[in-house]
Design a protein around this nucleic acid. Structure first.
Length: 351
DNA sequence: AAACCGTGGCG
DNA sequence: TCGCCAAGGTT
């Protein structure tokens, strides 16, 4: 135990010297801490930083956030990925404003009940905003602790999660839980990095078991990765004069509640003739002609590869046509939150 | 419990 | 190039 206290103290000391100046470290108010934690989930600081600043500027309080529409939240979130984070945050903001008098509950178990707030985020808010001794366990913590103690329990198993959470909660400095949590994460991000960690200047170079046994690159241990699913999206870029058509993805699937061009999904790179049935579903007896077809592109998601292309279709605009879709003026299309493939195509089209 | 859910940078 | 993985959470 004395050993653990020394490690926590060394982490805190390392942090005071090496911590970066970041906007969410300027104050510990729960709303801004929460916002930063959600944005930074599975996301690098450089990628999330500008989003954090824009959200805080547009929605300076949780009440501003809660009063926004979901479409507006998603539009500001566009490009960040994992869009359920935005939807869940919005839901929780409204919950806190309406059911909790705009105040976050000041304990871990209540925080954990909110949508989009898991063990990590609950511990982060509890420790940073309310000085409560709950240890965060994120990718950095897994890496640092697995190396320091040469723990070979796979981190992506139930047993692994339990093991590392218990160890992290033994290690936490109960006087400075927020700083301690940020210290171990910052240490993992800057010193004990996934590849080429800086072991030579590491304050634990004489205590790290992985280092002593020359096995640093063997930790953390993981059991395996899931298989990648391939999908094929034939987007219909409909040219109806000034207008085109969009579809809102409402099902439980990727990009939920974002907008896109109407799509015919196939299970392979289909020939155009194979799309006839799909086209008929949209156009039935309307006249249209295929004006051109883009090459295939690929969007890599964490667990799927989306192969997509654009079928350019020209048709005469008729009132009430394609009523299952959203009719929009081409120039208004930038008001909609769209996934990356659509965003890139809109830039290319230069509408 | 295992799948699902984005995007970008890095070596 | 391509697999890894980044302040995870939900179903």
């Amino acid at each position: 135990m004395e050993n653990l206290k020394a490690i926590a103290a060394d982490l805190l000391q390392w942090y005071t010297i090496n911590k970066r100046t970041l906007p969410w470290r300027e104050n510990n108010a729960p709303y801004s801490v929460w916002l930063s934690e959600i944005i930074l989930q599975q996301t690098r600081i450089n990628q999330g930083l500008s989003y954090y600043l824009r959200f805080l500027e547009k929605y300076p309080t949780i009440t501003h956030f809660a009063n926004a529409s979901e479409d507006d939240i998603l539009k500001l979130w566009q490009g960040l990925g994992y869009y359920s984070r935005a939807r869940n945050m919005h839901h929780t903001a409204q919950n806190i404003v309406n059911q909790h008098h705009e105040n976050f509950p000041k304990n871990y178990s209540e925080l954990l009940k909110f949508k989009g707030v898991g063990e990590y985020t609950a511990a982060a808010i509890a420790s940073i905003s309310f000085n409560l001794p709950h240890a965060v366990v994120d990718g950095n913590v897994y890496r640092v602790l697995s190396r320091l103690f040469a723990i070979s329990t796979p981190i992506d198993t139930t047993e692994g999660k339990k093991t590392f959470k218990e160890l992290a909660n033994q290690l936490i400095d109960k006087d400075y839980p927020g700083d301690y949590n940020q210290a171990i994460m910052e240490f993992g991000a800057l010193q004990c990095t996934p590849r080429n960690p800086d072991c030579d200047s590491c304050p634990f170079r004489n205590r790290c078991v992985a280092r002593q046994t020359n096995l640093v690159d063997q930790f953390p241990v993981k059991v395996g990765k899931q298989k990648i699913k391939h999908r094929y999206f034939n987007y219909l870029l409909i040219d109806a004069g000034q207008k085109t058509f969009l579809n809102k993805r409402t099902k439980s699937d990727i990009w939920k509640n974002l907008y896109e061009f109407p799509v015919i999904e196939t299970d392979h790179k289909a020939e155009v003739t194979e799309l006839e049935e799909g086209l008929l579903k949209f156009f039935s007896n309307l006249d249209f002609e295929i004006n051109g077809i883009s090459p295939w592109h690929k969007q890599v998601l964490s667990h799927q590869h989306i192969h997509y292309r654009f079928i350019h279709i020209r048709t005469c605009y008729k009132k009430n046509m394609l009523s299952s879709l959203i009719k929009v003026n081409k120039k208004d299309i930038f008001n909609f939150a769209v996934p990356k493939p659509i965003e890139r195509e809109l830039e290319r089209l230069n509408w």
